[in-house]
Structures are given as C-alpha cells and as structure tokens.
Amino acid sequence: MLILGIESSCDETGVGVYDTGRGLLAHRVHSQIALHAEYGGVVPELASRDHVRRIVPLVREALAASGHEAADLHGVGYTAGPGLAGALLVGAAFAEAFAFGLGIPALPVHHLEGHLLSPLLSRDPPRFPFIALLVSGGHTQLMRVTGVGAYELLGETVDDAAGEAFDKTAKLLGLDYPGGPALAALAAEGTAGRFKLPRPMLHSGDLNFSFSGLKTAVLTATRAPEWQAERRADLAAEFQEAVTEVLVAKSIAAMKSAGVNTLVVAGGVGANRRLRQRLNESAARRKFRVHYPELEFCSDNGAMIALAAALRFEQGAKGSREGRFAVRPRWPLNELRPPADIA
C-alpha cells in the first residue's frame, strides 16, 4: 500500500511517501522560519498562504524522489488537527481534492499521533506497549501506548508546554526566533547551578507538568538588581536543566506506574541534546529502553503523517472518497480509537 502524507498544521509544509512493504520512500519539508523571523513568531495568515505556495511543488518532488506517480497511490493522509485552522484547511483541501481526483480514500490524521508514531520510522523502532513523552511547542503529555489508536493519557501540562516555555524564556533573554533551539545553544555555553530555579511539580505525586512558573522565575532573575547580561548563558543552562530534570523524572515515574519498560520521546523538544543525554544516562542506570525519532523527524514533517495514515489503513480505516473535509484545531489525542473500533 502506497500512501501520501500531507502536514500543514503550523509553519512547516511536509510531504511524505510511505510504502507499507518497503517503508519510507521519500519526504520533503519546507520550513517557514525565515518568513516569520522578523515578527518574532508564527503569523497564521502568512503561514496559510505559504502552505498554498509550497504544497504542490513539494508533492511533485516527493513523488518523483519515491520513483512513483500519483496514479500509483492507494490513499492520502493529511493532518486534520490540532494546529492553526487556516494552515490545516490548506492541507485538508488539497489532500481531499487530490484523493478525490484519483479515486482513492483520504484519511484525516491527528498531528500528535504522527509525532507519537514517528520513532517507528527509525532504524531501531520500539515495540508496543510503551510510554510516550510528547514534548513540543504546544504539548507536553505522557501517554501509555498499547497500539495504533490505543492511547491512555497519564499526565499533561497544566499551563505552558515545555517547548512554549523554551520559546518564551528565550524571548526574555533577548534571543532570536525560533527561541527553543537558540536557548539550547546558549545553554551549552553556560553552567547550570549558578542560578537556582524551581523544578515545578517535581514532587507533586502525579504525572502532570507546569512550566509557567519556571518562566516567571527566569523573568525575576533578569530583573534583580545584581543581574548582568553576560550571565545569560548560565541562566539558560539552569533553565534547561530544570525542564529536563522534570521531564526525565516524570517519564520514569510513568513507566513505573504503568509497568512498562520502554520510553518513546517525540516532538520538537525531543531533539534537545541535554534531554537526550539525561534520558540515556537514566536508561543505562535503570535498565529501560528509550527511543527517539531521527532528528529530521522531530520537527513537523509529512513522513510521520504518511506512516500514521498507512498504519491506520492497514488496520481497517476506510477514509473518505467523497471529497469532504473538516479540520479540528483543538483535538485531544486521547479521543482517538484503534481503526478496528471505528470501522
């Protein structure tokens, strides 16, 4: 089964071609970082318009790189949510129209399910069941995953997500957009411990997170009379250490409570080197396995959407052949069901 995947939830236009027998054949991504940089963040209308410009050329490129033509496709998967409404509509309209013209089914895919399953694209894919730590700009969640569509929410952030806290803290420190990678780079130049920041909800007794107060603590530090701008790297390092310490501790607690010995980390923050280092060290000490997507699949991409759609088609999802579409800018992941339960 040959599946085309379309991702357009925010500021990357992604296209992937996945074969259920041979795996990922090709994928292409266009990032809008340069477009939004002068505004210091994503401008939804500009994002939508850029998706319109990029999506057709990227589909052509990905299909050519895969060695296939549109007529060879058996289905199209597209991100239907969560995300920016206008950006989602671009991908949905194209995918449904493209599939309708080819006479093949189109399947709406949950953006976070794509991230959650993206480690299956790696050379060393995890096996079900596992605990998933989803960490991105808008989401920080711990899920127990027993199969495709079988997701149990164990804990989530009660305010800012980890990626959001990285971006907001970067802005407080005067760093350019995109803030998360810039803050991580600055942290590599500093020394954690020279500032004392809180570890929010580290001992809360549950699996929830909170990062808004940590961001406020950074703001307080920068407004102190003794603050010196040359200490930014040390403050960035302490902030990163606080976030990663909480993420690691809660992930280990989730595995213990669920009786699962495998952890999957997915989403943009999953590319953070310090987070990976701390998790790998803990895995070595505590004898659990940890899986990450390849770095190219940490950010938004069409490959993960093609994979998620292919797995759902394989397990009985029907999709639509009528050219209808609807997007869900807000769509809780735990509302998903295995394809067999939907059929």
Results as ranks from 00 to 15, higher is better:
340 A>M: 11
125 P>S: 08
60 R>P: 03
220 T>D: 15
232 R>Y: 03
193 G>T: 10
50 D>P: 00
288 F>K: 06
174 G>F: 06
266 A>L: 10
129 P>N: 09
13 T>R: 00
35 L>D: 01
90 V>F: 00
147 G>L: 07
98 F>C: 06
212 S>A: 13
146 T>K: 08
72 D>H: 03
36 H>R: 05
247 L>P: 08
53 R>P: 00
308 A>P: 11
81 G>R: 03
150 A>T: 02
63 L>M: 12
339 P>I: 04
111 H>G: 02
192 A>Q: 06
305 I>Q: 00
233 A>D: 09
83 G>W: 05
241 E>C: 09
142 L>F: 09
287 K>P: 04
101 G>A: 12
172 L>R: 14
326 A>N: 09
150 A>C: 02
17 V>E: 03
95 A>M: 12
23 G>K: 14
322 E>G: 14
32 Q>C: 08
59 V>M: 12
255 M>I: 11
197 L>V: 05
27 H>R: 08
101 G>I: 11
258 A>Y: 08
137 G>P: 10
24 L>R: 09
153 L>S: 03
92 A>T: 09
313 F>D: 05
86 G>Y: 15
19 D>C: 15
328 R>F: 13
272 N>R: 13
311 L>F: 12
68 H>L: 12
199 R>K: 15
185 A>K: 02
343 A>Y: 03
82 P>G: 01
285 R>H: 08
276 R>A: 01
12 E>R: 00
283 A>R: 14
5 G>K: 10
92 A>K: 04
109 V>Q: 01
203 H>F: 15
244 T>D: 02
49 R>W: 05
85 A>R: 12
117 L>G: 10
57 P>C: 15
135 V>A: 11
264 V>K: 15
267 G>N: 13
92 A>H: 04
101 G>S: 11
201 M>L: 15
130 F>C: 10
132 A>E: 10
182 A>S: 07
188 A>C: 03
84 L>W: 11
111 H>I: 04
293 P>F: 12
154 L>T: 02
274 R>G: 02
136 S>G: 11
13 T>L: 07
173 L>C: 07
154 L>G: 04
280 N>I: 04
89 L>G: 01
342 I>K: 12
239 F>E: 13
178 P>H: 00
97 A>T: 13
321 R>Q: 07
314 E>L: 10
16 G>W: 12
78 Y>G: 02
248 V>M: 05
303 A>W: 02
32 Q>W: 09
